[in-house]
Design a protein around this nucleic acid. Structure first.
Lengths: 349, 349
DNA sequence: ATTAGCACTCGCAATCTTAGAGTGCTAAAC
DNA sequence: GTTTAGCACTCTAAGATTGCGAGTGCTAAT
């Protein structure tokens, strides 16, 4: 019952949010009555506003100002009131040109992130998930370093390369390492990283109990290589662009708030955690303000969508901007971008 | 003559700058007379101030405020008036513990940058120069990708790995690539990248006119690999930490200024250019305000120093902070850090 | 050359004023 | 019972006014 409110109230909320998004100013009853298209007086609107305020949808900054939407109000707005303006054919075509199949995943991500930032004039982000799933090992190679350390080079899929340094108990010659690599290549190449990590190594170890010394060493090394988080530096898998655009927004002119936000961007960890939550859902998802339970995003919203290959959500992309953003424009942009990226990935596979 | 001014004026300028750095407030004649230790009256100080103002060393924000140093005033201060407080033995020992010889150059740079930021409470930066000099090629390896593209993997020195994708005219088999790599390894391994790029390939091409097909291909590939800027992504060689700390400073509370600064940080290019200028000089160098001819650094100073191996300056590290920073503390910190990094690099070599 | 004295300037913060926007309530109208 | 008009009231934002304190520049005396 607390959530129930009539058609007119809904309509008014919609118009109010739209108006506030446009102007950034609290919306008064007179203006709202005029803009609503309804043939009601300002007094009636005032009554409705009082109800909406009681429901926690709107609030007024002070007694004699108009109303502004609360996070909850925004939530209702985007969930059930928003009329999305689909992109024109033209726009989609323009966008399609942006994401050529060239370059590594890293490069693609950077380009998409920057594109999102540019077109929405907010901050763009692309997360590249740990490549544990859907990534098959192409080749493995060892190289001796000083101090009993070995450089392992993994080639994954078609484009991506990862380097890991492991430590071993003694010095190995180049020839020995070559042998180990050959063995591992013959056993592991073509398998998905996920499988390699969770099954194959174990099997190898178990089945070949009496195996010769060399294989034993090889497997020990491999275990060390694949034990690490696959993406060598855990922070490489998240690209943020155009953060500075956020400095242009009124609601973020408070330096301390801005600072908190930028520090969060630098941490990455927390943002990634947030994005991980989106991995489950389907289609465009929206975080409004600190719904995420994450204080620094106070006056911000995130609009995200997963991109996928073969029907499986691989990663997340989206934008971060002020809560007061043009959702009806941003949502289809993020949506289409995710689909185009999915398509580009499918094609390059 | 324009630059000449007496001992007392110099002393007063020194005390003024120190006082302003401490308080951030314009310094009045009375306070300055008191703090100077000189047995003179405020009126005398006022006369001296008038002279200094004429010389462009100080200025007053408005008629009835005290004086603040201009960039030129700061310049004189750091060049000839500053008494540097050397670090205590204790502090140096603590610092020495920070930079273990572990990890790649990238990791070392990140750690140093972050350390500088932490201890100075400003932004730290470390530039890793293109590894063209002082970097010897350890190993080269090719791997076929789709679409006639080849992944080239370079191992440089002991720790660093670089990946480059090149395009070729036809498909090469793994065996063919192995052959090419073997050939190149035998010819190039152990040489410095700089030489490889500028001499050896050329020589090879010239001397072996009638060489067999395979070698020809190998050299063509190698030329493509080494033609690129050696650091695969040109932006990887600059690590900045703690930018957000800059948001805490009064003089950068202007959002637009801050935005310009952060955009410059994102560009990297321009900052790198600036740092390149430091490569020539010896010891600690200081940029004050927009001396660099670089507007966004308006109210900022950079304190930098080169770090070196075998007597050759390899890269630059330092800090960025407000012009009004505690130079007498920051300068020795940067100085010692550079020396410690040099030592750490020498050791790990 | 240095100093004391003094009039003067300026910025800052506090206080007050006014205009405008918008509300909440009440009583009448539909 | 919902809707409306009317009205008193509240609050803010923007100017205007004032007093204070800090600091200067000038002048005349030391």
């Amino acid at each position: 019952m607390a959530e129930e409110f009539g058609d007119r109230a809904q309509h008014l909320l919609k118009v109010l949010v739209e108006s506030y998004i446009r102007s950034g100013q609290p919306v008064g009853s007179r203006a709202l009555a005029r803009d609503s298209g309804l043939d009601v007086s300002a007094a009636t609107v005032r009554n409705a506003m009082a109800d909406l305020e009681e429901l926690g949808m709107v609030s007024s900054p002070h007694t004699s100002a108009g109303r502004i939407p609360t996070n909850k109000g925004y939530r209702i707005f985007v969930d059930s009131l928003l009329t999305i303006k689909p992109l024109s054919e033209r726009e989609i075509i323009t966008m399609r040109g942006q994401f050529g199949g060239e370059g590594s995943n890293q490069e693609l991500a950077a380009s998409v992130s920057s594109y999102l930032s540019g077109i929405t004039e907010m901050a763009g982000m692309v997360m590249i998930p740990r490549t544990a799933k859907r990534s098959s090992l192409r080749h493995i190679e060892f190289m001796p370093l000083s101090d009993n350390r070995i450089l392992a080079i993994l080639v994954i899929n078609e484009k991506d390369v990862q380097n890991t340094v492991i430590k071993v108990d003694r010095h190995y010659s180049a020839a020995e390492l070559q042998q180990s690599a050959n063995f591992l290549n013959s056993e592991l190449t073509g398998h998905e990283l996920f499988d390699v990590r969770h099954r194959i190594l174990k099997e190898l170890r178990e089945t070949k109990v009496g195996m010769e010394q060399m294989m034993h060493q090889a497997i020990t090394m491999a275990e060390q290589v694949f034990d690490q988080p696959v993406s060598s530096s855990d922070t490489d898998d998240f690209v943020l662009s155009g953060q500075t655009r956020l400095m242009g927004f009124e609601e973020l002119s408070n330096i301390d708030k801005l600072r908190g936000l930028f520090e969060a961007f630098n941490e990455k960890q927390q943002i990634l955690q947030l994005l991980d939550q989106c991995l489950d859902g389907d289609g465009v998802q929206i975080f409004i303000g600190d719904e995420s339970g994450y204080g620094v995003l106070d006056e911000c919203s995130m609009v995200t969508s997963g991109y996928q290959v073969d029907g499986e959500v691989l990663g997340i992309l989206g934008v971060i901007g002020p809560t007061r953003m043009a959702y009806e424009r941003v949502i289809p942009i993020v949506d289409v971008t995710a689909k185009l990226v999915s398509a580009a990935l499918a094609q390059s596979k």
